[in-house]
């Protein structure tokens, strides 16, 4: 029971980041390597905002967290948009290799940019969510966990509604299917891509702040492993598929929790990547992805 709960909790983080990966991939078929670093950036923006606000009474921490959350979502989203505008857009139509290498470059710049500004050592997050731990059908559950999961859940539900019901959401889906046709139908493709980057990055930023508040420590390389994990989640669910990303995040969370239990915690990451490789080799389209026949 404890394992299921842990898996669910970690999985919801993965899902939140995987969403951004998946959305961006779905629309412009770009693997944004820097996505995990946007998560890191979000955490550091949250850190900076909180530090500049000064002391906050501990009792207000959840309210304060929400404000900070929104602020750093906004800023991280903007950062994502800028990255797309200046690093990825000029390369649209360039060979895939060039774009991938650029993404690695962006990731590098973000990591070591933050390291140069904030220092290479881990920083402790100014607020730390603490709450009572209680038993819920056999699992130890803490209040912050529940709060964070509710926030994550709300963000995902909101996103799904946005994509299904608004005109921008429709435009996103149509661009994912055929960019040129969408262009011909009068959709402002660039504007939609910008918005996609904004949303995806904002979600990663939110996850970053939440992780910072929960674990209490942030450092400039924190996005690397989690970026890989989020990609794994996106692949498990079927990359480019929004619901798949959510599902994939949860599945990966479970798999990891159980894997760590059986093989020992130090093998947790190895286990996750093994799952990724297995999926890519056996079912590259993921659980929810549909088969695509590649045409010559």
């Amino acid at each position: 029971m404890q394992l299921i709960w842990d898996g669910l909790f970690v999985g919801s983080f993965y899902a939140l980041i995987a969403l951004g990966y998946s959305m961006v991939y779905g629309i412009i078929k770009l693997l944004n390597f820097a996505h995990g670093d946007l998560y890191m950036l979000g955490a550091f923006i949250g850190f900076a905002v909180l530090s500049s606000l000064g002391g906050i009474p501990a009792s207000l921490s959840i309210g304060a967290l929400l404000v900070v959350l929104l602020l750093s979502m906004l800023l991280t989203g903007t950062a994502g948009v800028l990255i797309e505008r200046f690093a990825y857009r000029p390369l649209r139509g360039a060979p895939r290799l060039a774009v991938l290498i650029t993404a690695v470059g962006v990731s590098f710049s973000l990591e070591y940019g933050i390291s140069a500004i904030a220092g290479p050592n881990p920083r402790s997050f100014p607020i730390r969510l603490e709450g009572e731990v209680f038993n819920l059908i056999g699992a130890r559950v803490s209040l912050p966990q529940i709060v964070l999961m509710i926030i994550a859940g709300l963000l995902m539900i909101g996103l799904n509604g946005y994509i299904q019901n608004t005109s921008t959401g429709r435009a996103m889906r149509s661009i994912a299917l055929d960019r040129n046709a969408s262009l011909l139908m009068g959709i402002n493709v660039n504007a939609v891509i910008t918005r996609t980057f904004f949303i995806g990055s904002a979600l990663a930023g939110a996850a970053g702040v939440m992780a910072g508040a929960y674990y209490g420590k942030i450092d400039f390389l924190m996005g690397f492993i989690i970026g890989l994990k989020a990609f794994t989640a996106a692949v498990i669910g079927g990359i480019g598929n929004i619901k798949g990303a959510m599902l994939g995040g949860l599945v990966l969370g479970f798999v990891e929790a159980f894997g760590a239990q059986w093989f020992g915690g130090q093998w947790r990451d190895v286990f996750a990547f093994a799952v990724l490789i297995l999926f890519l080799t056996l079912r590259p389209t993921g659980i929810l992805g549909e088969r695509v026949t590649e045409r010559v």
Binding site: L100, F273, L276, L280
Partner: peptide, 28 residues
């Protein structure tokens, strides 16, 4: 062998994963 059938961007991230696996394995 398992990864070279993949598309180039998947290959990139899988090799990244393999690199990490190797390091973590050596570490443990």
């Amino acid at each position: 062998a398992p990864t070279l059938r993949l598309r180039s961007d998947y290959l990139a991230i899988v090799t990244l994963g393999f690199g990490e696996i190797t390091r973590i394995t050596a570490n443990n």
